[in-house]
């Protein structure tokens, strides 16, 4: 099958590692070869967390600069920062809700406007799917379900060979029962807004 290279970018605590692992689980259940790559340790103390999923006939576990087919950004400025992973044919899926780093709070940098950030991304890649993931997570009843919203948007974008029902099945078996309802709702909201 055709190779798909996905890069997930987020901030420690936003749950992008779980999202990428669930894509790996769903791929495994469908017999699609998948490698999921993540970095643990110091990076997770409020820093940037990057993970990658490679689907198809590929053995390398990471994505080089300019080689991502899909970039899933959990925070708008981090999406912009991760554009080095993209090329003109990349599909970018991004949360629009900002999470300014503490460097901004202590005056060591300025957080750019979200609109400008999105405009800059839009001009450079094939397609941008921008959605207010935080609002949808809240609507689903759990602010921590942002990763499910983003996962929904990824599946809804039709960029990978995993369907909604298969993904939902994986979410049902691999996430905590107590959050299942809100997770599935968040996933659905992400799916609906993936355009």
């Amino acid at each position: 099958m055709e190779t798909r290279r996905l890069v997930f970018i987020g901030v420690g605590g936003q749950g992008n590692l779980l999202a990428s692992r669930l894509v790996g689980e769903a791929a495994l259940s469908l017999g699609v070869p998948a490698v999921v790559s993540e970095i643990h340790g110091m990076a997770q103390r409020g820093g940037i967390v990057e993970s990658a999923v490679l689907l198809g006939d590929v053995t390398s576990p990471i994505v080089s600069n300019a080689e991502a087919d899909v970039l899933i950004g959990f925070e708008p400025v981090e999406t912009l920062r991760a554009l080095v992973k993209c090329n003109k044919d990349t599909v970018v899926i991004t949360n629009t809700s900002p999470l300014p780093p503490f460097t901004v709070t202590v005056g060591q940098g300025t957080y750019p406007s979200v609109d400008k950030t999105l405009d800059m991304i839009r001009g450079k890649v094939k397609k941008v799917i921008a959605l207010d993931g935080n609002a949808m997570a809240a609507e689903a009843g759990n602010v921590l379900s942002l990763n499910m919203v983003m996962l929904g948007a990824l599946i809804g974008s039709g960029t990978i060979p995993i369907g909604a029902e298969d993904m939902k099945k994986t979410i049902s078996t691999s996430t905590k029962k107590a959050f299942l309802e809100s997770n599935l709702k968040a996933f659905g909201l992400g799916m609906e807004n993936a355009n």
Binding site: Q44, G46, G47, A66, E78, V84, T103, G109, V125
Partner: peptide
């Protein structure tokens, strides 16, 4: 010829996000 990299010259300097004590 590798994949063409995007021209990101107009992207302003973004605020850093180093790891931090919780």
């Amino acid at each position: 010829k590798g994949t063409e990299i995007l021209d990101l010259s107009e992207v302003p300097e973004l605020p850093g996000r180093p790891p931090n004590l919780c």
